[in-house]
Amino acid sequence: MRLGVLFSGGKDSILALYKAMEKEDVVCLITVISDNKESYMFHTPNIHITEYQADSIGLPLVTIRTAGVKEEELKELRRVIEMAKEKFEIDGIVAGTVESVYQATRIQRICDSLGLWCFNPLWQKNQLDILREVVELGFDVVITGVFAEPFDSSWLGRKINSKTIDELKKLSEIYKISPAGEGGEFETTVLDGPIFKKRLEVKGFSINFSKGSGIMEIKKLELKEK
């Protein structure tokens, strides 16, 4: 089955991609670039990195830009999936949705309207297990956005590893937040992993943090041989 993977460049979409590549024929990545930092549907920090990730993984990237107005952005999502269907003759879509019935419902409806299969290999998965699996598989995941207490600027740029996972677990119990950022508490960017032919090396970045939220914006990076 020829599949396109909805791809934000964060840990969930990379794990969904990895699982899809193990079982089916992934022929393209699909990215929606939202201008709305609070988009209901789309991961935003460092979305431009998907171009480098796709290059490293060796898959073509289909992109579309949206103003990110709620529900309106779904028309852009439908359009970009349609573009991928026409250009790469995909039979279906893979998404890294874990808990959000809002996201899952809308992606399912779009796929249904386009006659496409829809797969969500992380659906309902334990969020700490997702973090552990990503680390065990050898993905290099960095926190590049924090949007809720108790996360401060010191979390920006931190790698997800077993120590970070233990801390996230404790924080999730104290603050009743998602340990994997599923509620939008934090966002991640993946720089390397088993499906990367070259690793992404950050050569320049800026950290902007104020009023309890912030992002690590990757300004410059290079693809390096592994």
Partner: peptide, 16 residues
């Protein structure tokens, strides 16, 4: 067998 749907429709039931 062992399709991408396995993780979406079977594992959540097994987990419960």
């Amino acid at each position: 067998k062992n399709s991408l749907s396995f993780e979406e429709f079977v594992l959540p039931i097994a987990s419960i």
